[in-house]
Structure formats: C-alpha cells, structure tokens
C-alpha cells in the first residue's frame, strides 16, 4: 500500500489517560498496518463538542475550530485533516463550511485568530478516519491485508449519530449505512446488517446531564444487539463506545437486566485481524473484556 499522510486531530478524549485512550492506541496500530502517517496538529485545542454551545455562542465556537484548521494549514501544509472523534470531525467540518458560506463571519473569525497570531485560509478538506478507510483505502484493500480473520464472531455495527449525520460517508444512507457492516465482514467476522439500532442516539453528552433519559436509549441499543445474537458491538465513535460500555452495570441495577456485552472500536477489529497483539489493539482498555478478540490475538 502506498504511504498516506494526514494532519491528525485526535481530540481531548484521545489523549493519554483520557476516556478513549484505547481508540487512540488502536488507531495508531491500525495506521502502522495500513501505512498511514498521522501528523498531529501542533497545539490543537478542544472543539467544544456539541455541548459547549450554552456558553460558547456561534462565533467563539467556530473560532475554536478555525484555530485548529489554521494551525494545520500552517504546520501540516497540504495535508487533509483527519479526526477520529465524531464530535471533533463534525465541529471542524461544520466550522469550515459555515465560514465558507458566510464571508463576514470568515473575516471576523480571522480577526479573532489574529489575536493568537494565526490566519485561516480554510481550503483544507476535513475527513473522518472512517472516510480514509472506506474512500481512500477501500474496504477491499482492507480485506486483502487480513492475517487472522475474526471467524465466528458476530458483531453488531453501531455507527451512532455524528459519524453518520449530518455529513456521513459519501454514498451511504443516513438511515441504514452499510460501511461498518462491510468492514466487519472484511475482517472475517459476521455482520448484522439488520441491527435496527445501528444509528440510534446514545444520548451523547446528555448521558452526563440526563443519565436516566440517556440510559433508557442505551438499554435499547444493547438489547437489540442481544436480540440479534451479537457477541459484541463495534463503533467508530468514542462517546458511543463509552456510553454503551460503561453504564451497563447501572442499567442492570435499574432495569434488572444482565447486560455484559463488549463494545469495541473498528480500529481494534482491524488491529487484531492484522495480527497485532491484544495490547497493541488496546484491548486492555475495555471495561468489559472482548474475550473473543483476545483469543484471536493470542493465536
């Protein structure tokens, strides 16, 4: 595979000791295998996700993302920006689009950026890592590199919200995207294309502020995975992963269920299928161990 290079925006949760450090590590491993070089945007900042809006109004929020794009344009010239977090990708891409549409807002964002000695060109494409996998590399090429197919593992592909809407992956439907199922099949596992909760909301940031309302939705996401006889759930989104994995005990307590289903990242599936160790795939970052993946990694 030809070497590819991108300007990398990991985001706050993909840092050492943060909630999706297992995404960060498995993405690093996956990129080694796929010959992708990620050049981190120097001094990147938080995008304020989709919850900062109460205190951060439109221009301050857009300016936060503009700073990251400007830093990328200055230091990682002519490289497309790639984000692994759904909210980071969405906020950055949304800011880029809005500042393209609105010239006066673009001018004001640059006035604000000047305070930090930066200038936005806003000519850089903003991609999600899933787009890199599906569009730049291609699922067929992913399949060719598989050394240890994940045979006999049934996986519910949970795409979630923000990786899928409002931008999503070109050519995929918002209501029933298939790329994650295709990827699951490509690494040798069994997909569940009719997993009906594949784009159901987990509550996002409201899992923190409205836990009961959100956990009711998370319960539905897990229940449907069990109903479809899934062994585990796989997702591209760090908040989906955390919300669906870590509250299973609290949901069990409240609803008298016995949920204990692993929730992993697509990058962990690829890392294991490409023959890397459990540690390289960050399987030690699971709260609910993905035993079947550990077994394949040990083989």
């Amino acid at each position: 595979m030809a070497k590819r290079e991108y300007s990398y925006y990991p985001g706050c949760s993909s840092q050492k000791g943060a909630s999706s450090s297992n995404l960060m590590k498995s993405v690093d491993t996956m990129c080694e295998e796929l010959d992708i070089q990620l050049n981190e945007i120097p001094d990147w900042n938080c995008c304020s996700a989709s919850i900062g809006y109460a205190s951060g109004s439109e221009l301050p929020r857009l300016t936060l993302s503009a700073r990251n794009i400007a830093l990328s344009e200055e230091h990682n010239k002519n490289q497309e920006i790639v984000a692994t977090c759904a909210a980071c990708w969405l906020a950055t891409k949304e800011a880029a689009e809005r500042l393209k549409e609105d010239e006066s807002m673009f001018a004001e964002a640059n006035q604000a950026l000047a305070e930090a000695g930066l200038k936005l060109q806003n000519t850089t494409p903003i991609k999600h890592m899933a787009e890199v996998i599906v569009e730049d590399i291609g699922i067929d090429s992913i399949k060719e590199g598989v050394k240890k197919p994940l045979e006999g593992i049934k996986i519910a592909g949970y795409v979630g919200c923000q990786t899928n809407r409002p931008f999503g992956i070109a050519g995929e439907s918002f209501e029933n995207p298939m790329y994650l199922d295709n990827l699951i099949e490509a690494v040798g596992a069994d997909a569940i294309p009719t997993y009906e909760k594949k784009v159901q909301c987990c509550g996002g940031a409201l899992a923190f502020s409205e836990p009961e309302k959100s956990q009711e939705m998370i319960k539905g996401i897990i229940e449907a995975a069990y109903d479809n006889e899934a062994d585990m759930i796989a997702t591209p989104c760090p908040l989906c992963q955390a919300n669906v994995e870590i509250y299973q005990d609290q949901i069990n307590e409240k609803y008298n269920t016995k949920f204990n289903i692993p929730v992993v990242y697509y990058s962990q599936l690829i890392a294991v299928a490409y023959g890397r160790s459990a540690s390289d795939a960050a399987l030690d970052g699971q709260l609910i161990a993905a035993k079947q993946l550990e077994d394949v990694a040990k083989k």
Partner: peptide, 20 residues
C-alpha cells in the same frame, strides 16, 4: 492536558465574543 498557547487562545475567544 492543555494547549501551550493558553493566553493566545483566551484572547482569541474574547475577541470573537466581542465581535459577536
């Protein structure tokens, strides 16, 4: 964790708020 240029970032946001 944090950015190195905290003061630049804060000045930038203050300016954006003023403009808005």
């Amino acid at each position: 964790h944090g950015v190195k240029d905290v003061s630049g970032l804060q000045k930038m946001i203050k300016k954006a708020q003023e403009l808005e």
